[in-house]
Simulated scan of single mutants.
Amino acid sequence: MPKSDEQIGIKAMMSQAVSFEVDTYQNNRWVLECVLDDKDMALSTAKRLYDSKRFSAVRVVQETYDENSNSSRERVIFETTVADRDNRAAKARQTATKVDRSERQPLKKRPRKTTEQNPAKKSGPSLWVLLLLFAIISAGGLGLLVYVKSL
Results as ranks from 00 to 15, higher is better:
Gln62Asn: 09
Thr64Gly: 09
Asp66Lys: 01
Glu67Thr: 10
Ser69Ile: 02
Asn70Gly: 12
Arg73Ala: 14
Glu74Trp: 06
Glu74Gln: 14
Arg75Ala: 15
Ile77Phe: 00
Thr80Met: 01
Thr81Gln: 03
Thr81Asp: 03
Thr81Leu: 02
Ala83Arg: 11
Asp86Val: 08
Asn87His: 04
Arg88Trp: 09
Ala89Tyr: 03
Ala90His: 08
Lys91Phe: 04
Ala92Asn: 12
Gln94Met: 07
Gln94His: 07
Gln94Cys: 05
Thr95Leu: 08
Thr95Pro: 05
Ala96Ile: 07
Thr97Val: 11
Lys98Met: 12
Ser102Met: 09
Glu103Thr: 15
Gln105Val: 04
Leu107Gln: 08
Lys108Trp: 05
Lys108Phe: 05
Lys108Cys: 07
Lys109Cys: 08
Arg110Met: 08
Thr115His: 15
Glu116Asn: 14
Asn118Tyr: 04
Asn118Asp: 14
Lys121Glu: 12
Lys121Trp: 08
Ser123Val: 04
Gly124Ile: 00
Pro125Gly: 01
Leu127His: 06
Leu131Ile: 08
Leu133Ile: 12
Leu133Phe: 02
Leu133Arg: 10
Phe134Val: 14
Ala135Arg: 12
Ile136Phe: 00
Ile136Leu: 04
Ala139Phe: 04
Gly143Cys: 06
Leu144Ile: 10
Leu144Arg: 09
Leu144Asn: 08
Leu145Trp: 04
Tyr147Asp: 14
Lys149Pro: 00
Lys149Gly: 05
Ser150Asp: 14
Ser150Thr: 13
